[in-house]
Structure formats: structure tokens, C-alpha cells
Simulated scan of single mutants.
Amino acid sequence: MMKIKNVTVFGSGVLGAQIAFQTAYRGYQVTLFDIKDELLEQAKLKFAQFKEFYQQDLNAPPADLDDALTRIYFTTDLAESVKDADLTIEAIPENIQIKKEFYTRLGAVAPAKTIFCTNSSTLLPSQFAVETGRPGQFLALHFANYLWKNNVAEIMGHAGTDQEIFDQVVQFAKSIGMLAIPIYKEQPGYVMNSLLVPWLMAGLDLFRNGIADAASIDKTWMKTLGATLGPMAMSDLVGMNTAYNVIKSYAESTGDEVWKQRQDFMKENFIDKNKLGISSGEGFYKYPNPAYQDADFLK
């Protein structure tokens, strides 16, 4: 079995940057690829924030965090990014055509040894396994947001994934500090989103149908279950763009009118108004200092 040393992450957005930093923090050599230098510069700013989070949440030594940064290489050259890659993790936009085109290009330049992983939340590996040119070495490795503390990684192959490769990725996930969750057959949404999405949609439907306001929905959930967040606050945390893309994917794949109504509502009330959640300063709540963090919120 090949020893994984060099890891390439494609996409420097919310999760891509987190995956790259966590992997480097756990001792791997990491290459972070994106299509524009400006995006990579933004990732460097995120890394500065991550250092603060890791110290606060994990009590991580500053010297170890500085060392992690020395193990991250940045590039906009796809062939360069994978020339020594043992394993890659793709975190590019959640669009099937974009992923197919990307993997066609990647498969042509990556070494034969390289394992391909997708962090896709809503798409199945079998939907674009052929385009990789190496379906046996292709599977999903899915992370949660704020992965250094929400450290769950779901590993899901497709019918053509080699079992040895699957097992190796499970071990890799453990080696970067994740609670590895093996998925035994393809399931849209894995375990995490199969549980999370219906919960978020229940909150959204209560809100968009005028049953209750966002705060009341969250208060009900938080008080009755002793939870720290309700579905509306979680939607802001996940981000409206991500939520919208998930809803859009379900609307297109199922043809269900309810999913289409949810899609239209999200676009009109959040996406078009740049109310994207925490990242834009407003979603269901306003940031910083959202109401649900107030000491009197549940009183």
C-alpha cells in the first residue's frame, strides 16, 4: 500500500482552505490549487484566522501552526499541483458539469498513483467517476464546516472503487484527526446531510410558509432539545449559497414542486439580496452578535 505524503487540495473556498490547513497541520505536504492568484491570496488570509481558531478551540501551540503554513504550497497550474500528489481532495463548485470537465483535465495530468477524492455534498461519485480516468481510485471524502472541531469525515465509494483504496482513505482521514465514518453504499447526502438537510428544510418551510419567525423556530429547537443552535442559525453557518445549491440540486434531480418552491424562495429572499449568512453579515440573523448568541435569547 502506497504511503500518502503529498496531498493536493483543489479549491481554496470555505472548506477547501480548511481541508488544506488541517492536512498541513497534521504533518502532510499540501499543495493548494485554485484558478486565480487572488483566490489563493484570500486563502492566506483565512489561514491567519484559522491560527486563532486552532489556538482558541484546540489549544494548538503557535509554533505548530506556523510550521503548518510552511508545508502549504500555492499554485494556479493544474499539472504542477499534482506532479507529486499521492492523494487529491477536490472542493470546487457543486456543479456536475464543472466537476466532469475538471476531472477530465485532472486525469490527463495526474500521476497514475494518485488517488482522487471529491468533497461533494450532494453529488454521487458514480456521476463523474468515468471522467476521472481511474474510477477504481476515485471516491468521496466529505468534511463538515469548521472541521478542526466538527471533525467528522465521511468516506463513500461507488461500485467501482477499489476496496484497498477505500480503506486507505479511511486511514488517511483518521491520520488528519477526523472521526472517520465509512459509508457502505452510495447515498445522496451521506449520513450527515441525510440527517441535516431534512432538519434545515423543516425550519425553512416553517419560515417561508409564515408559521413562525426564525428566532421562534430556533428557540423551540434549542430549548426542547438542549441544542446550541437551531436550524435557522445553522443555515447561516452553512451559508446560503451552499444551502441554495443543495436545494437546487434536489429540485433538478427530483422534479418535486416543493423543492422548486424552496429554490425560488431562497433565490428571491437571500441570494439576490446578498443575505448569504455569516459570510455577508446577514442571513436569518445579522452578524456579528446574532440574537441567538444573546444570553437572554431563551428567556
Rank of each mutant, 00 (worst) to 15 (best):
V152I: 15
S175W: 00
I98P: 05
A17K: 00
Y287W: 01
P135K: 06
L45Q: 13
M2K: 14
E41Q: 10
A144C: 14
Q18S: 13
M232H: 03
F47K: 08
G160N: 14
S81I: 05
I278W: 02
F172E: 07
R26N: 15
A243P: 01
S120D: 08
Q18I: 01
K46H: 12
Y28D: 11
Q55N: 09
G133I: 00
E38W: 08
D77E: 11
E186C: 04
G157I: 08
M240C: 05
S235R: 02
N241K: 04
Q56P: 00
V130A: 15
M201H: 13
S235P: 01
Q55K: 15
Q261S: 14
G133H: 06
A153P: 09
I89V: 15
R262C: 13
I72T: 08
I72D: 05
T104W: 02
Y292R: 08
D213Q: 10
F284D: 01
Y190G: 07
S194H: 10
E268N: 14
E52P: 04
M2C: 04
N193L: 06
A227W: 14
T23G: 02
K260V: 10
K248G: 05
E94R: 00
I115R: 03
L179Q: 13
Q49N: 14
R26L: 06
P111S: 03
L124I: 11
D213S: 11
P125L: 06
P135N: 10
E257C: 01
P125M: 08
L45Y: 09
T161V: 08
G277S: 09
Q29N: 15
S126H: 05
F207M: 05
I247A: 12
I217M: 03
A112G: 09
L206F: 01
K5V: 07
I165T: 15
L141H: 05
E41N: 10
L276P: 06
F166A: 10
F265S: 06
I92Y: 02
Y184G: 03
E164Y: 11
K51P: 03
M192R: 03
V7K: 00
I211D: 10
P125S: 05
Y25W: 15
S120W: 00
E90V: 04
A215R: 11
Q22Y: 00
